[in-house]
Amino acid sequence: MSGGRVAHVTLKGPSVVKEIIIGITLGLAAGGLWKMHHWNEQRKSRAFYDLLEKGEISVVAEE
């Protein structure tokens, strides 16, 4: 009496190419988000200095 053979999934080690592709993808996504944040902060600074130069705002407290 022999029982039916069950096909088990054999566990393999990590795929190096797959790990590299996932790492590159995550790195590019994080870099893109960081760059968008940097551009947003740069835009805010540029708008502040443009208003300062036009005289619409001042950094000196009014008395």
Rank of each mutant, 00 (worst) to 15 (best):
R46W: 06
K35T: 08
S15N: 15
G27H: 03
E41T: 10
G55A: 04
W39P: 00
I57P: 00
A30L: 12
E62V: 04
W39V: 14
V17Y: 04
L26F: 06
I57D: 01
I21E: 08
E19K: 10
E19Q: 14
M1E: 10
G13S: 07
V60H: 05
G27C: 09
G4V: 07
W34Y: 12
H38N: 13
W39M: 14
G32E: 00
L51Q: 15
I21A: 12
E19T: 15
M36A: 10
E41F: 06
V17E: 12
G3T: 09
L33T: 13
E53A: 11
E19N: 13
L52E: 03
K18I: 04
D50M: 05
V17M: 09
F48N: 04
A30F: 05
G13A: 08
L52Q: 04
A30E: 02
V59F: 06
A47I: 08
P14L: 09
T10C: 11
I21L: 11
Q42V: 06
V9K: 15
V60Y: 03
A30D: 02
V59E: 08
L26T: 09
K44I: 05
L11E: 14
V17Q: 13
T10R: 15
A7V: 15
G31I: 05
E56D: 11
P14A: 08
R46V: 11
I57R: 02
L26M: 13
E56P: 00
G55D: 01
V9D: 10
G23Y: 01
W39Q: 14
T10G: 12
E62Q: 11
L52C: 03
Q42S: 13
S58C: 08
V60Q: 10
D50L: 07
M1H: 09
Y49R: 11
I24K: 13
L51G: 05
I57F: 01
R46S: 15
L51T: 07
Y49I: 10
E19F: 10
A61K: 13
G55W: 00
A30W: 01
T25Y: 03
V16G: 07
L11P: 00
G31R: 05
G3W: 03
K18V: 06
W34F: 10
V59L: 14
A61H: 05
P14W: 01
G32K: 01
V17W: 05
S45K: 09
K54I: 03
W34M: 09
P14M: 04
H37C: 06
Y49F: 14
G3S: 09
I57T: 05
S2I: 04
I21C: 04
E63S: 12
V59N: 06
A29D: 01
T10D: 11
L33G: 15
A30N: 03
G13I: 00
S45G: 08
G4E: 11
W34K: 13
K35G: 01
K35A: 11
A61Y: 02
V17F: 08
G31K: 06
S45C: 05
R46D: 15
A29Y: 03
H8G: 08
K18C: 03
